[in-house]
């Protein structure tokens, strides 16, 4: 494997610190890995402008890439084009659901436990910037949903 492929594989496998079942690849925030001026550059797009995990993710990516034998790398953040919930991969959506978080969907989220659409929003603001708080009216379980901003 060449250096860029090695860096990409290492970066892609880094876990999101707030939703550790998802990798940065699942989340769709890994934009690019390329060699620029002799240095491997990894480009990441934050999910929310104020996401406090952005810094940790950058640190984790740097550490993972160096551990994979890449001597020098840098992580750059980009806002353009902006990340949207559609950037989450099908694999990422599957993992979210399995973990008990409803993947982003326009309208009322389905309960990740029993699949019922009969749910209510408890609060549009949850334990992290990217999640909202809901309750299932069929099985009575409370659950988180990944926010579907802008829709």
């Amino acid at each position: 494997m060449n250096v860029v492929a090695r860096a990409r594989a290492a970066a892609a496998a880094v876990e999101d610190p707030e939703i550790p079942v998802l990798t940065v690849e699942d989340l769709g925030i890994l934009r690019d890995v390329a060699l620029r001026d002799g240095v491997v550059e990894i480009v990441v797009a934050p999910t929310f402008l104020g996401c406090p995990a952005t810094r940790t993710i950058a640190d984790d990516i740097r550490a993972a890439v160096v551990a994979a034998g890449v001597r020098e790398c840098r992580v750059r953040t980009t806002l353009s084009p902006p990340w949207t919930p559609d950037s989450i991969t099908p694999e990422g959506r599957r993992k979210l659901l399995e973990y008990g978080i409803a993947p982003p969907s326009p309208g009322t989220p389905a309960c990740p436990q029993c699949g019922s659409r009969n749910t209510e929003t408890v609060s549009p603001f949850g334990s992290t910037l990217c999640k909202s708080l809901h309750r299932c009216l069929s099985c009575r379980e409370p659950f988180d949903a990944f926010k579907c901003a802008g829709r």
Binding site: F48, L49, G50, P52, S123, P124, F125, G126, L129, L133
Partner: peptide
């Protein structure tokens, strides 16, 4: 508690916008 989370989330959004 829900309102505590809401106001803190909104504050964090705004500070994130300021940083950008």
């Amino acid at each position: 508690l829900e309102e505590e989370l809401a106001l803190a989330n909104i504050a964090l959004d705004l500070i994130g916008q300021a940083r950008a």
